[in-house]
Amino acid sequence: MAIVRRADPVDLAIATAGEAARSARRGRLRRWLPISIGIVLAATMVVVAAAAPLIAPLSPSAQYADAVLKGPGAADRHVLGTDEFGRDVLSRIIWGARVSLEVGLVSVVFAFAVGVPLGIVAGVLGGRVEMLIMRGADMLMAFPTLLLALIIVTALGGSLSNEMLAIGVALTPNFVRLSRSLALTIREQDYILAARALGSGQLRVMARHVFPNALYALVVVATLYIATAIRTEASLSFLGLGIPPPTPSWGNILSEGRQYIKCCPWITTFSGLAIMVAVLAFNLVGDALRDLLDPRLKGE
């Protein structure tokens, strides 16, 4: 006679409970780990940029004649080495964070402030206004972001504010398109009908009903565009069209270090690493926010 041990119901319950807890934990980890890493990195960048004068060990423009093109060393004065003028690479990268973050934030705010109202107006009003706005956006969309920013920066000349403006304009059509498509779905909702029935005019509908309901998705996407803006800024500076030296920006540190990759690869390596980490941080936060808050955007 075979002895079959029948599972105790209590045992079973415990097993499933343990399993469920583990998979829930895994789910939570899966959900929160990337965003935590992203937020920590992004917050670090913000703190470093804001506190650059306090954190940077040396002045970013001070030239140390005794330490030209010196390699990185923890024991020395220059932890990440120096460049061809004997300037401290670490200090320059810390100050460069300011430029990247400033350009990243201001240009996205600009694109948001210009693009979203236009997109909502196009989506809600429809008709000729929509056609006019959308054809304009399409025309700008024909240029890749970097190319458009490059044209504008060339036209206006390289400076911090021009770079912000150029990247802002280059990103604007993206916000126009997205906010229009959100407005198109929102305007069909019952609450919009209700608001109109209560006598709300177009402007009130747009400002009080469409905009707040689109805000969630727009903010998520804006985070992702900060990453794009930072990368575009670095690319422009790398091409020598961004902020003119000696103001340090990650792109121009990298560009200047390019001539010395044979002897002194640390200049390009560390400045490029800074760019990558910053872009990665905002990509992680944006991605994770999108998955958490707005699954509708997943396909974008």
């Binding site: 790398f238 690869p265 390009t268 490029g272 872009v279």
Partner: peptide, 22 residues
């Protein structure tokens, strides 16, 4: 995928040059 999205092509290019050319 995230690294590829975040890595600027000019930096990757320089790293490749440092390793494989120099």
């Amino acid at each position: 995928a995230l690294l590829g999205l975040s890595m600027p092509v000019f930096w990757l290019g320089i790293l490749l040059l440092i390793v494989f050319s120099l």
